[in-house]
Measured scan of single mutants.
Amino acid sequence: DRMTSQEAACFPDIISGPQQTQKVFLFIRNRTLQLWLDNPKIQLTFEATLQQLEAPYNSDTVLVHRVHSYLERHGLINF
């Protein structure tokens, strides 16, 4: 699994950072998509996403918020 070119453009700090940071991003992105796909008729809020993310992935709330906002803005969740 890899970041898309659009994700890389929107998250230059992640793509240029350590490999582990990219893996954390990918986990948060994929898990958020999975959470929404589990029940697409219900809006997936940032707060609900954060509550359902497993530790330690829920510890970087800023990154979780950025990923959630990106997915929502680009019509990948909550459409």
Rank of each mutant, 00 (worst) to 15 (best):
D1H: 05
D1L: 09
R2E: 04
R2G: 06
M3Y: 08
M3W: 07
T4C: 12
T4F: 04
S5K: 10
S5G: 10
Q6H: 07
Q6C: 11
Q6N: 11
E7N: 03
A9F: 10
A9I: 08
A9Q: 12
C10S: 12
F11E: 01
F11P: 01
F11Y: 02
F11N: 02
P12F: 05
P12W: 04
P12H: 07
D13Y: 02
D13S: 03
D13H: 06
I14H: 01
I14C: 04
I15V: 14
I15F: 15
I15H: 12
S16R: 10
S16T: 11
S16E: 11
P18T: 11
P18R: 08
Q20H: 14
Q20L: 11
Q20F: 15
Q20A: 12
T21G: 13
T21F: 07
T21H: 12
T21Y: 11
T21E: 10
Q22C: 07
Q22R: 11
K23M: 09
V24H: 14
F25E: 01
F25I: 02
F25Y: 09
F25W: 07
L26S: 10
L26G: 06
F27E: 13
F27A: 15
R29E: 00
N30I: 03
N30M: 05
N30C: 05
N30K: 07
N30Q: 08
N30L: 02
R31K: 12
R31C: 06
R31W: 06
R31G: 04
R31T: 08
T32C: 10
T32K: 00
T32P: 00
T32S: 08
L33Y: 07
L33G: 01
L33P: 00
L33I: 13
L33K: 09
Q34M: 06
Q34D: 06
L35M: 13
L35S: 08
L35H: 03
W36I: 00
W36L: 02
W36C: 05
L37C: 11
L37D: 15
D38I: 09
D38A: 15
N39R: 06
N39D: 09
N39I: 01
N39K: 08
P40L: 04
P40C: 07
K41S: 13
K41H: 14
K41M: 11
I42C: 12
I42L: 12
I42T: 14
Q43Y: 15
Q43T: 13
Q43F: 15
Q43R: 14
L44M: 04
T45D: 06
T45F: 00
T45C: 04
F46C: 11
F46L: 13
E47T: 07
E47S: 13
E47A: 08
A48N: 07
A48K: 14
A48I: 07
T49L: 14
T49A: 11
L50G: 02
L50H: 06
Q51W: 07
Q51V: 08
Q52K: 14
Q52R: 14
E54T: 09
A55F: 13
A55Y: 09
P56E: 05
Y57H: 06
Y57W: 14
Y57N: 05
N58T: 10
S59R: 12
S59D: 11
S59N: 15
V62W: 08
V62C: 10
L63D: 01
L63S: 01
V64R: 00
H65S: 13
R66C: 03
R66P: 00
R66Q: 07
V67E: 01
V67F: 01
H68K: 00
H68S: 03
S69V: 07
S69T: 12
S69E: 12
S69C: 09
Y70Q: 00
Y70E: 03
Y70V: 01
L71W: 00
L71E: 02
L71K: 00
E72N: 07
R73H: 15
R73Y: 07
R73A: 15
R73G: 15
R73V: 13
R73I: 07
H74P: 00
H74G: 10
H74D: 06
G75M: 07
G75F: 05
G75H: 12
G75C: 08
L76Q: 07
L76A: 07
I77W: 01
I77L: 03
N78D: 02
N78E: 00
F79A: 15
F79R: 15
F79P: 12
